[in-house]
Amino acid sequence: MELGTGHHESDASARLGWWLISCLAITVLLTLGSLLIGTSSIETSLGWLLSPDAQSSVVLWQIRLPRSVGAWFAGALLGLAGAIAQGVFRNPLAEPYLLGTASGAALGVTISLIAADASMTGLAWASRLGVTGAAFIGACGATLLTISLSRGVLQTAGLLLAGVVVAFLLGALTQLLLLAKPEIWRSMQTFLFGSTGFISWSSASLLGAVFCLCVVPAILLSRGLDALTLGEDTAQSLGLSLPMLRLTLLGVVSLATATAVGQVGVVGFVGLVAPHLVRETLSVNHRQLLIGAPLCGGALLQAADLASRWVIRPAELPVGAVTACVGGTYLVLLLWRRSRDG
């Protein structure tokens, strides 16, 4: 895409305005669509909207709507985390799970499932945490392990390497546990492919609260990310405290990713693709990117959630498989277009 230097300032802001409006419009449409799409036909759902009874209002307002709203916030968290990660690591392939978050969460879930299944006294705490709590703690633990293995947050290569090592180690541990307890394999698979099926209003509001908590400091620090794109030395010469900047931003990435993984499982590609979607359609600085990527990520996961409920209803596709198909196809197209355009 063109770099925006040729545009006039007013053109660029008008374009951003249109972009934001269309993104929000898509989200509103998807949210409305979520009320109509489920296990019933669209006509039936319309009928429910017009004359609700006790059961249909539960389905519409306690199941479909929170599910869609929660999916949006989870996607937004992943989009935000992806955009920050790509900025901090100055790598367009960086994504929310690169600090080992996903495998840490998976290990946490495995332990909690084993505990729930076996009701072992020593593991009662893990069972009480439930899948969401265990995933969150596992994700945070893995991030801390990665950061301590790379001795801080300053070395980009060290962090990436430590992230890969932690992901493999925890993944292997998970596999070993699964081997000892094959009954939980199906549950694990659900977690590893992501699932939006059981998002309630309480999980949607948790996701929403964490999103607000994450997006504010991220946008406040967006100038720092802009400076980082010029190189770490330049950023430092501009008077930025690199350790503080990186630590805060990676903290935001971890919190956002761990919360999303806890509620919806490991949904792939949203965090990777959302920032690219923004960059492809807008010429942006980090402030705009950090607003745009969550909007894109949210709409993407919301759309994937609708597809997962619709395609083989009343059965369901794993939502992570849908995002991987859509996101993967988009990335291939993007690469193909770039190589064509030279």
């Binding site: 489920g38 296990t39 019933s40 059961q55 539960v58 389905v59 199941i63 479909r64 729930a116 299944d117 009701s119 069972s127 659900t190 099926g197 059981f198 409920r309 209803r313 009343p314 059965a315 369901e316 794993p318």
Partner: peptide, 20 residues
Amino acid sequence: KLNPEYVVRENPDVIIVAPA
């Protein structure tokens, strides 16, 4: 793998489930 909404709509009389 069901959409959980389906179970709510079908409103079964009996659910057979894992003890945990």
